[in-house]
Design a protein around this nucleic acid. Structure first.
Lengths: 360, 360
DNA sequence: CTGAAAGCGCTTACAG
DNA sequence: CTGAAAGCGCTTACAG
């Protein structure tokens, strides 16, 4: 094992000398100024003459000097790292969400010269999160949307006075969070379907204790209220969490003669599609169908599914900006607009063609 | 904006005093020893009496002392961070791979008290990767499998003498990499199908310049050779990268009367399923089908797909261990076994029932 | 506007 | 086995 290890290290030229790496001391010496001055020139804090600053900049440029972030971190007791907590397992349907969100977070973080450190953690086991806190590896944390409750972890972070932002709806009031406009989006999608003439829309939702379920339900009701169309209570099915529940709902939907089905998320949609296919019910010929989240996984599906598109990357950016603000960073950019877009596709087609309604 | 920022910070009690956090100096003073001694007790390096060490440990335990990782990092010029480079975009089919792999990496890293810092980067734009290097935020890097070539980034890392490990097949010899046993797995799956009586297996593969395509092709050939069965060249289709190519291959496959189709990856599988469905060709009644990677996305698919399962989490763990070795860390645990498992499901069913062949 | 000095909290030769 | 001291590369009152 040791021999192997040495072989590998040699491969990397670990024993070769590295190129000279400058420190603030070197610069000070070369330029005949104090390192205080150099530090000031770089940070831009405190008074400094234009001339001196330019001299320093020139040197930095020429020798490609980069301040040692570690040293700065120690001096300022700041790490310039943000923690990103991801759940250990999540539904296949949620992958695109996490990836997009992460891209947004990384992009914004690096713009402020912060890095993202990840931890896999949930309420059952947040040792990964705890390590970060105890080792003081991060200045703050982003808790990415998790289906399961993580209030224990949140309490821990509060106790340790570690600033954090939650992506997704928060259960408690004194938690900073960012989220998609679930209620508004749901209202928009429902509204458009109502305008298209649907009168007996069925709604399939997940666990009723999840806040997102509640928001989307409210949006569904809002849209009906706005257009003064009565909601058929018997067509609202919540707690749809498995295939059996979906099948049962489909049974009811057929009996109640719904003219369209709205699924609150893509997990439900995928189960529903399976159900309908099994019973040889065709979409959109026999029944129309729409989903609340636009999943790339359905790209190859036939028929294509009418759905809501959310700006998930923007959500990640906002989460990151919010956290940076908490940390006292001066955030200069505009918040990303967390809009949604209804994308009409084949699954709700009647006589009209593709039509895109865009709320800008 | 500023006001808002202040409100948020108050929310966090940033202005409250934090609990006393001990330093190595405090311990030294309280215990009446030098901080050198305390440092030695903690690190276990150098000679130290049992008695003293225990005294230090007791104090640490009682006051829940944690060394400041930043300070240690500066003193040792080590960050105890590993970079994980992810591509900006990847196919939906690859999500499970990345997540599993990441879980493995994180798990191993934290066991050695390292953290994972992520960067989104590829050859087109690896500024995220570059920032990490320039800011010296990490001790080494893991480049996760990317479909596109990232040799420019690799050259950069070599030049900067930043140790790295590639997950997936490497193009060049002097690169350290870990990968699934693609050739062996492919041979195994093919072999089992041949044993089941298939004689005219078609093979659908992706870009022929990808090493993984080559490995899986070789495995396919190996299996035929082992059982002395002739390979029908006309049934091998490479460069299947879009729906049109898939459709064309299907056309040929029907003409050539293949009795089964092997897809090299799940992207191809999903296109193939679409194609077959469009032409009303039933699986497994009309033709059998198997895929080289076991994707949870096909969970709900009917029929279920016979496929190869890889230990992706183990792959991540190995990648991390390999990197830690490169960094001179004494890796004590066993390498995870990178096995594969052929999982027979409905899509290749003939008269026999479910059967699982497991190579342990 | 500039600098000397102390400090951030560790590690590590070196000397005893 | 233990300790005084220098050092890691920055920042930041404080004094000029």
């Amino acid at each position: 094992m040791l021999k192997e290890s040495n072989r590998l290290r040699k491969l990397w030229g670990m024993f070769m000398e590295r190129e000279k790496v400058y420190t603030i001391n070197d610069i000070a010496r070369e330029l005949g100024v104090s390192k205080t001055t150099v530090s000031r020139a770089i940070s831009g804090k405190g008074r400094i003459s234009r001339e001196t600053q330019e001299k320093v900049f020139a040197f930095i440029e020429e020798h490609d000097y980069r301040p040692n972030v570690l040293a700065r971190a120690l001096a300022q007791s700041k790490t310039y790292n943000l923690g990103l907590v991801l759940p250990e397992d999540f539904s296949v349907m949620d992958f695109p969400f996490f990836k997009e969100c992460m891209n947004g977070i990384c992009e914004t973080a690096s713009r402020y010269n912060y890095d993202i450190v990840i931890a896999v953690a949930d309420d059952q086991d947040f040792s990964g999160c705890r390590r970060m806190v105890e080792n003081r590896k991060v200045d703050g944390m982003i808790l990415s949307r998790s289906t399961v409750d993580n209030s224990v972890m949140q309490r821990y972070l509060k106790e340790k006075q570690m600033p954090f932002v939650v992506v997704g709806p928060a259960k408690s009031d004194d938690v900073v969070w960012v989220d998609n406009l679930n209620r508004e989006g749901s209202c928009e999608l429902t509204g458009i379907l109502l305008l298209k003439g649907f009168r007996r829309l069925a709604l399939l939702g997940g666990n009723r204790s999840h806040l997102v379920t509640e928001s989307r339900l409210q949006g569904f009701l809002d849209a009906h209220r706005e257009q003064q169309i009565l909601v058929e209570e018997a067509l609202i099915f919540l707690d749809i969490e498995n295939y059996a529940a979906t099948a049962e709902a489909v049974e009811q939907i057929l009996v109640q003669k719904a003219d369209g089905i709205l699924c609150m998320d893509d997990f439900i949609t995928s189960m529903l599609i399976g159900c309908l296919r099994e019973r040889n019910i065709r979409v959109p010929e026999d029944i129309k169908l729409a989903s609340f989240y636009d999943n790339p996984q359905f790209e190859f599906l036939s028929p294509t599914i009418t759905s809501l598109y959310y700006n998930t990357k923007g959500l990640g950016q906002n989460a990151c900006m919010t956290l940076l603000q908490l940390l006292g960073e001066e955030v200069k950019e505009e918040e990303a607009v967390l809009n949604y877009q209804v994308i009409l596709r084949e699954s709700t087609k009647q006589t009209d063609n593709h039509l895109i309604s865009c709320r800008a």
